[in-house]
């Protein structure tokens, strides 16, 4: 095992509803690195995101997920979060009755393990909202309730900004965003990224990678990473589609 890795996934197998989706996936992310996992529909992208965060609907049947040296498999989602793992959801859940500000305050207190003074919290929140260009009355709305697609993704980025994880996984964050919203979200992520943090972008399309530049690109097909490379791999996929790789894999 590589001691410098933040996140290290070895031979990961996972099932959803009794069907095997991940079939031996390997990946390592070191601090300061941006990785992109690209794959067609049904390749296991969302399963990977949910399995990393510990969604109980997904069952790990083999392999390991090491985060900062510790095994995550079997750990509750909240414990993973408190250790510094963050997942930006593809489809964030609406929580009517719970305001964004109330939710964020509880989440921040839980992750930092201490009560952040109200005033300090507010100042930090307003600064992060400014960074992500979200309106202040956003904070008083119910979390994701009646939010547009773009607002939901921005709310996810606001949570990312407030929780300051050491490893962030962005699941299809570009889906449903128009180009202006995509740019705003990407600018926010770039501003939050730092040398101690790892970032994993999970996406179907290459367009997000025009704004958040990964050093490593991996192609996920049928539950395995079948190719890894640099940013040029994403361009190749954009030009030729997944078909050529799928064909190459199945005939191999």
């Amino acid at each position: 095992m590589n001691e410098a890795s933040l996140l290290e996934i070895n031979a990961l197998h996972a099932d959803v509803a009794g069907k095997e989706i991940l079939k031996g996936l390997d990946l390592a992310v070191r601090p300061g690195e941006v990785h992109a996992i690209m794959g067609p529909n049904g390749s296991g992208k969302s399963t990977l995101a949910n399995t990393l965060m510990g969604n109980p609907r997904y069952a790990v049947t083999g392999g390991e997920i090491r985060f900062l040296g510790d095994e995550l498999i079997g750990m509750a989602p909240d414990e993973r979060a408190r250790r510094g793992l963050f997942l930006a959801f593809q489809y964030p859940v609406a929580v009517p009755g719970v305001t964004v500000v109330n939710f964020l305050r509880q989440a921040v207190n839980a992750v930092r393990g201490e009560e952040v003074p109200v005033r300090e919290f507010r100042e930090e929140l307003f600064a992060k909202m400014e960074l992500l260009k979200v309106d202040r009355d956003f904070a008083r709305r119910y979390l994701n309730d009646g939010f547009s697609g773009g607002e939901k993704k921005r709310a996810e980025m606001l949570q990312l900004a407030m929780l300051q994880p050491s490893m962030a996984v962005l699941d299809e964050t570009d889906s449903g965003l128009d180009i202006d919203a995509l740019r705003t979200v990407a600018d926010g992520v770039n501003a939050l990224m730092n040398q101690d943090m790892g970032l994993l972008l999970i996406t179907h399309y290459q367009r997000l990678l025009n704004y958040i530049k990964p050093q490593f690109v991996h192609v996920l097909i049928d539950g395995r990473i079948v190719r890894s490379g640099g940013p040029d791999l994403a361009e190749e996929l954009e030009a030729n589609g997944y078909d050529s790789i799928e064909t190459a894999v199945s005939s191999a």
């Binding site: 510990g54 969604n55 909240d78 963050f86 509880q106 929780l163």
Partner: peptide, 9 residues
């Protein structure tokens, strides 16, 4: 799951 993923038990 969503709320737990933000650190709440």
């Amino acid at each position: 799951f969503y709320i737990q993923s933000r650190g709440l038990t």
